[in-house]
Design a protein around this nucleic acid. Sequence first.
DNA 1: ATCGCAAAAATCGTATACAATAATTGCCGG
DNA 2: CCGGCAATTATTGTATACGATTTTTGCGAT
Lengths: 213, 213
Amino acid sequence: MRLTEAVHEHRVLPGMKLSEDEVGDVFGVSRTIVRQALRAMAHEGLVTIERNRGAFVAKPSVKEAREVFEARALLEPQTARAAAERATPEDVQILEAHITEEHRALAEGKAGLALKLSGSFHIEIARIADQRTIEAFIQQLVSRSSLVIALYWQRRNALCESHAHHALLDALRRNDPDAAEDLMKGHLVDLLSQLNLRETQGSVASLREALLG
Amino acid sequence: MRLTEAVHEHRVLPGMKLSEDEVGDVFGVSRTIVRQALRAMAHEGLVTIERNRGAFVAKPSVKEAREVFEARALLEPQTARAAAERATPEDVQILEAHITEEHRALAEGKAGLALKLSGSFHIEIARIADQRTIEAFIQQLVSRSSLVIALYWQRRNALCESHAHHALLDALRRNDPDAAEDLMKGHLVDLLSQLNLRETQGSVASLREALLG
DNA sequence: ATCGCAAAAATCGTATACAATAATTGCCGG
DNA sequence: CCGGCAATTATTGTATACGATTTTTGCGAT
């Protein structure tokens, strides 16, 4: 859904209220549909719903941020290993395209889009590993990581990322499970180390502006 | 929700149709509420929704069954380790109560209830580990495991289970992370080994009967 | 008797209307 | 001038109504 993308691309920020009427107006759909979408997003941890108060973009706590990366540390290295065992040339090609897109987005200054693509790289690896169940979990974790990054990221440059992804791609191309597992583990540690896990409160702008701008 | 419990206790079986009107009648609520619940259950993999056809209790394929246990194998041993590091006497007491209830349910011939309690034992361990994110994943996996068991279980006796849970409880009581991790790993392997992962098609009885009986 | 097609019934998807709850505003008293 | 209470406004929760799609049923032809 487009609202999910807006969250992934940091066009709507944690804490922002997602009024049912307002979202419905923006997308030209009824509240029924909006409610469905919001509840689905709540299930993935992207929004929190407070009874009789409405839906808000989730603001992961520091503890939750750590939990997300701990869960990723349990799931992704092993998944990268399995992916390296199974990766075909077609898979490698798809991942290459992903990285290319990611670079282009960065070059065009679209940091939000680049972040979203960077996340889908991880999801694609789970798909290559042929683990749909784990893939769904990783998708959730990547989504929530995006919120964590919106809240706790220190640097503004995401250059380090692309290097790690390149190295992972190489390991998959060589069908080298050990390398893939280690690289993924290191990559996650790197990501976590670049977070500033202290309390901050993000600013909340206008929803309509963020979606239409 | 009560419908979720009915699935966990094998009172409604995989493949059974969950008509919105019928479920609404049984519980005395509107279709709106039923739809919310069904969509939530679909998100957890308990039911599958086919557009314009309705919701059905999910029938995990053999591949999906394997995936569920592979995911559990990635998450639960580490979680048991963490739980063993943190377990307090109160935690141990809660788990003991769980096992007692489980035994009583078995003694009373309520196999479905015993199965549900056996699942909540695993979830409780994640709670003790203080990992809410992973806890939510394990909850999903336990739910889906219940469906897998309904479809692929061979023996009718679940006695082996209680022994494994006892041993795990001991490891937690002794705050022995290594033992907890190994025991959990072995427990999951045992569970998987008792499944007959060949295609079967379960019989589907009447919904209203199953819920009200 | 069986297959195919058409009409009827049932069921789901979406929109809208009404009720319940929370947030806001304005007023009054201190 | 400030704080608290009441009425108003806004927003969500739930039910219901209508349209779309699918499934079933019944009839007729082969």
